[in-house]
Design a binder for these strands. Structure first.
Lengths: 179, 179
DNA sequence: TATTGTTATACTCTATAACTATA
DNA sequence: TATAGTTATAGAGTATAACAATA
């Protein structure tokens, strides 16, 4: 992390800026990898489910959580789109959640091909317990942070995720200009 | 997570702080989920491998990258520990990388049970191409950010990952104090 | 004919168990 | 007896293909 003067930086032109950004990203890359591991692997989900007494598969928990955060019944296709997975995968999880009484399928009045997936009272309560457990852990990890740092983290993380998502989507359209 | 002292005066106690942090985390949670998806799923790795003309499996790429970032031959057990996976998984990936000539196994002079895994020139070049592609994409996504924001992101992300990792590890030792 | 969802199947990634060789 | 690694096998998670019902 070499400190630099903003004026100096921009005076050197875009190529130099790019190089500086790459230096910084290079330093953060291992942390991003680590964060990805903690979020996906690392049994974070399993532990939160255990702590909140929710006993379903991890993918099913994702579906239930997605449903809970939407505050509205969703179609299978919509759930799949939001989770960035394919339809059949969601069907399987919805089947399991239904078996356990955590969701129900109701008729979609607007389209008889589709059905709406809706959390039961029990399902909503389970999702709420799970989410509060997880959020509590994250919040605990931020103990000792200044208000400013916490706000900055939220702001920058959101912006970074959006920008990264947008840039990767753009790569699909303009396939890789040579570097 | 119910605060024991319901009525707080203007002075903010720890319980109130906790609640504030949870509010902020709740807002960032979807973004963290999204970021986790982008990093792990979303074909980011596959696309970077394609763009850098590296043709191995995704887990094998992780091993090769880990080796490249260590700048030193590593034992299978050490790679597994750093990747947080089990030994046999690494063995499989190392086998494939060896078949493709990207790594070699050399004798460990200090322990004849173990062998050291080392990237070949070709393997190191492939890892370097891959890493530069990925870092380039991330850096591009940060175009238009102020120097301050970029530095803050790096700093806060690193700290967050460390604190989160530490907190989750602590949960293993003091299993969930009842609330 | 296109779209929503389901069923059946296959593939990828990672873990556990059993074993070998060296310490 | 304990440790490093490998081989064989099993499981979780997700995708693709083929199909049904409705639009």
């Amino acid at each position: 992390m070499s400190p630099q003067q903003p004026e100096e930086t921009s005076a050197r032109g875009p190529a130099r800026d790019q190089e500086l950004r790459e230096q910084e990203v290079l330093a953060v890359l291992p942390r991003l990898t680590q964060l990805g591991n903690v979020l996906n692997r690392g049994r974070l989900t399993e532990r939160a489910m255990e702590a909140s007494a929710v006993h379903v598969d991890r993918p099913a928990m994702s579906v239930l959580l997605m449903l809970h955060m939407s505050d509205q019944p969703l179609r299978v296709g919509e759930i799949a789109a939001r989770m960035q997975v394919v339809g059949p995968h969601v069907t399987r999880q919805v089947n399991e959640l239904q078996r356990r009484g955590l969701i129900v399928r109701v008729a979609d009045p607007e389209d008889r091909r589709a059905r709406l997936v809706e959390a039961t009272a029990e399902g909503a309560a389970a999702a709420e317990r799970y989410m509060r457990t997880l959020v509590g852990w994250f919040a605990d990890a931020l103990t000792g942070w200044s208000d400013q740092d916490r706000q900055d983290l939220g702001r920058l993380l959101g912006r970074f995720t959006d920008d990264l998502t947008a840039h990767l989507a753009a790569l699909d359209d303009h396939p890789a200009p040579e570097e």
